[in-house]
Design a protein around this nucleic acid. Structure first.
Length: 851
RNA sequence: GCGAGAGUGGCGGAACUGGCAGACGCACUGGACUUAGGAUCCAGCGGGCAACCGUGGGGGUUCGACUCCCCCCUCUCGCACCA
């Protein structure tokens, strides 16, 4: 063991040992309790960033802790490798997406290895490996058989100049990010997964996931958005057809004075009268120019147009006009809304704008409502009026009564609707899993037969960023014989949304080399569910909901015996950092403004807020530089110590110094006492300072154990070890109890091992242990050493601290009361006052109430 | 706009079920050691002379509120084709 702490040498030594011995490779072992720890796998963007360092440091603490506790821990790592950035790199720099991706993976793998994370690298895979995505194609075919995958028309962002589909992210302020021309909405036939079939199960299971943060479950519940209501048919005037609407407010039916349809509603074409055609066309072309972001956010001006047609309110018999409205969505409910302007704010604004009739049907207590003077819709509860036989009913009761009568008369049905929409998985892009379907002029869409899988993503294509997917231009890929009739046909050129790959990778880690199907049920039965899943809060809804959905699909396809994939979830906060900018040169990297001035012009740099690290804002910290100057252990320690995992982490370089200093301090503490403590025995009984140190040692063991296990309060766990180290330094110079000192130092090394594994393994070896630290297991605390004789009692008068008094540990309430009242400062405060009440909380405080 | 969170010294944070607000670390100040110190060790460190005042702002519940309730402000995340 070297005299001075040299992280570079220590870390290289242990990383080599771990790699050579495949220290973290695991297999199914029925004799041990399993623990599956998973962090969300990274997208191979090129280099790891501080968000990765933090995420994977958090996971590694838990993995190493559980391993030390004796669990058989599966801790895998891989790559979420399909996606847009690879294709963009190809368009901009001519690098093939595969080359770009695999090179990035090589890079990032070595960076992760340099961090000393305890991964079973034998299980590594990338989702762009054929051996991964071919199984996804198989799952798709099974879903197709079951009707869980289907095709329908849906709109996409379309740049007419580039002749290509744009992601929402590629639309800047309504314009194409590459050519800035106006983006339009275009209807395309696309593949969907029927996640709505699972809406009810996904919702009810949110009640059975106690290991998930409440806020994530709440967000998912709202996303699924179950609402009970009723579907009502409004007959078209002079026709046989009815327009079906869904409403949760059947109680307001008598106040429905017009109807709003989604612009994409299938009846639109038939409803438009010749006189209104021009107005409707104009409206539709404006709506098409609003991208999805705008349509779904409510920032845009409520706008609509009259179709020229009318339908009949089924209970009043009144003829009501049918409008198209930009805020009505085809995907939700029936795509048609009965409009009640007096009791719905959106309908109110719409009616005022177009001068439509308003009728009050619910009266609140007090001021009667008058449609002529109302300033906004009344959405509260009240008593029904103008509602025929239902007048006088409370509106909540009327919901049920009206719905029941509609059912009896065959005019409507009670029903449940969800806000959740089916999952569109088609992407008009190259770098993704090819969708295994063939189109034949006579047979239609034909699934690729299982024996013909995989449909391999071809390598040699041209990337221009224009004219749609490169696959569509590759004859050798496109041209194929129809598997059903043998006549010339063409392949599907769309690829899957990359969320599909990340919806089942956790299951593939249990059997990455399995060739009999997507998942080896035996391996999956042993390892799944994931005991602890860790990742960014930004995935609270979409990724986590899709993964839950996919698990249930795989279960129903007989591929997996599991209802929910993740038993416990930890969502970590963002890593942020201050931004700096120069009035003339814009954003500056930290090193370009080291002295508070712009390195280019000397102008004072403007210090911005803490923001999520991003290349565009130039507020990034390169983990490599950090590791080079301080080592991986310091980088890990800081990212864990600076904030609790679920909080956003604000980066500041000075805190890193403190962690580095602490590790030096630990090293010296061991090094300076090596001679003294060699072979020293831990005494059964100790007195005075030695007893205090033993108590501190065991208190720290308990604290760290409880902080890691389930609570994930790593920052306080580390703080408590720092306190123990301070106690050890204070104890030095009292060499009469070397055994107590040895016990304390060894506790520090063992407790820190999950956080800073390299230095701890080295120190453990230096302490003369033949067995590696991993074999020593996790330390237990000795309840006997924790016993205290005296406790400090806080004495308050009217809730304000007036004194403190030391009392025997087991003193009864009366003794505490006496001791409190006798405390000199308390007694002085109480002079001349009447004591009304004395509240005694044993072991904590006494509050004397006077007045 | 809708949904979900967060806000505590100069800074990051602690206070677990309502019970000493500010643990631990950074920064800063002083001291020791030293040829030297940007190393190390020790000590101090919310504001105020004090009574007291202090957990984003305002109200409430309670013997007692950072913690519970109501209103408001600010910031962060998500909003279905970024992953």
């Amino acid at each position: 063991m070297e005299e001075r702490y040299n992280p570079g040498a220590v870390e290289a030594k242990w990383q080599k040992t771990w790699a050579d011995t495949r220290a973290f490779a695991v297999t199914e072992d029925g004799s041990k309790k399993k623990y599956y720890l998973l962090e969300m796998f990274p997208y191979p963007s090129g280099r790891i960033h501080m968000g990765h360092v933090r995420n994977y440091s958090i996971g590694d603490v838990v993995a190493r802790f559980k391993t030390l506790q004796g669990y058989n821990v599966l801790h895998p790592m891989g790559w979420d490798a399909f996606g847009m950035p690879a294709e963009n790199a190809a368009i901009q720099h001519g690098t093939h997406p595969a080359k770009w991706t695999y090179e990035n993976i090589d890079n990032m793998r070595s960076q992760l290895k340099r961090m000393g994370f305890s991964y079973d690298w034998d299980r590594e895979f990338a989702t762009c490996d054929v051996d991964y995505y071919k199984w996804e194609q198989l799952v798709f075919l099974k879903m197709l058989e079951r009707g869980l995958a289907y095709k329908k028309s849906s709109s996409v962002n379309w740049c007419g100049k580039c002749q290509t589909v744009l992601a929402n992210e590629q639309v800047d302020d309504g314009g194409c990010w590459r050519c800035d021309s106006e983006v339009e909405q275009k209807e395309l036939e696309q593949w969907f997964f029927k996640i709505t079939d699972y809406a009810e199960e996904l919702l009810t299971w949110t009640e059975r996931l106690p290991g998930w943060p409440e806020r994530v479950l709440t967000m998912q519940q709202h996303w699924i958005g179950r609402s009970t209501g009723c579907e009502i048919g409004f007959p078209l005037e002079g026709g046989k057809e009815t327009v079906r609407v869904f409403t949760t407010r059947a109680d307001t039916l008598y106040g429905a004075t017009f109807m709003s349809l989604a612009p994409e509603h299938p009846l639109v074409e038939r409803l438009v009268t010749p006189g209104q055609r021009e107005a409707v066309e104009g409206f539709l072309s404006r709506v098409r120019k609003q991208d999805k972001e705008q349509r779904t956010s409510d920032e845009l001006e409520k706008e609509g147009v009259f179709t020229g047609s009318y339908c009949i309110n089924p209970v009043t018999g009144q003829k009501i006009p049918v409008y198209l409205a930009n805020f009505v969505l085809l995907d939700y409910g029936t795509g048609a809304v009965m409009a009640v302007p007096t009791h719905d704010q959106r309908d109110f604004e719409f009616a005022r704008k177009y001068g439509l009739e308003m009728r009050v049907v619910i009266q609140p207590d007090g001021e009667p409502l008058d449609p002529r003077t109302m300033e906004r819709a009344f959405e509260g509860s009240g008593i029904l009026v103008n509602s025929g036989p239902f007048d006088g009913l409370a509106n909540e009761e009327a919901k049920e009564a009206i719905a029941t009568q509609l059912e009896e008369k065959g005019l409507g049905t009670k029903s449940v609707k969800y806000r959740l929409r089916d999952w569109g998985v088609s992407r008009q892009r190259y770098w993704g899993t090819p969708i295994p379907v063939i189109y034949c002029d006579s047979c239609g869409a034909v699934p690729v037969p299982e024996k013909d899988l995989p449909v391999i993503l071809p390598h040699d294509v041209a990337f221009t960023g224009e004219g749609g997917s490169p696959l569509a231009k590759l004859e050798s890929f496109l041209k194929v014989d129809c598997p059903r009739c043998g006549s010339p046909a063409r392949r599907e050129t769309d690829t899957f949304d990359t969320f599909v790959e990340s919806s089942w990778y956790f299951a593939r880690y249990t059997c990455p080399d399995y060739t009999g199907g997507p998942i080896d049920r035996e391996a999956a039965r042993y390892w799944l569910p994931v005991d602890q899943y860790i990742g960014g809060i930004e995935h609270a809804v979409m990724h986590l909901l899709y993964a839950r959905f996919f698990t249930k699909v795989l279960r129903d396809l007989g591929m997996l015996d599991l209802d929910e994939p993740f038993a416990n979830l930890l969502t970590q906060g963002m890593v942020c950092m201050e931004t700096r900018s120069c009035p003339t040169h814009g954003w500056l990297y930290p090193e370009e403004a080291a002295d508070g001035k712009c390195a280019k012009c000397g102008e004072a740099a403007v210090l911005g807020r803490n923001e999520k690290m991003s290349k565009s804002k130039k507020n990034v910290v390169d983990p490599d530089a950090l590791i080079a100057s301080y080592g991986a252990d310091t980088a890990r320690l800081f990212s864990l110590f600076a904030a609790p995992p679920e909080k956003d982490l604000e980066w500041n370089e000075q805190g890193v110094e403190g962690c580095y200093r602490f590790l030096h301090r630990v090293w010296r503490g061991v090094q300076d006492n090596l001679e003294l403590i060699r072979g020293a025995e831990i005494p059964a009984v100790a007195e005075g300072p030695a007893r205090e140190l033993r108590r501190a040692t065991h208190r720290t063991i308990r604290k760290v154990t409880e902080d890691i296990d389930g609570r994930f309060h790593f920052n306080t766990a580390i703080a408590s070890v720092m306190e123990l180290v301070n106690a050890i330094y204070a104890f030095e110079g009292k060499p009469e109890h070397p055994g107590v000192l040895r016990e304390a130092l060894e506790a520090v090394v063992r407790l820190l091992a999950p956080f800073v594994p390299h230095i701890c393994h080295e120190l453990w070896e230096g302490l003369g242990h033949a067995e590696p630290l991993a074999a020593a297991g996790w330390p237990a605390w000795d309840a006997e050493a924790l016993v205290v004789d005296e406790v400090l009692l806080v004495v308050q008068v009217n809730g304000k601290v007036r004194g403190k008094v030391t009392v025997p540990a087991g003193a009864d309430e009366e003794a505490l009361r006496q001791a409190a009242l006798a405390e000199p400062n308390v007694a002085r405060t109480l002079e001349g006052q009447t004591v009304r009440k004395v509240i005694v909380i044993p072991g904590r405080l006494v509050n004397v109430v006077v007045g």
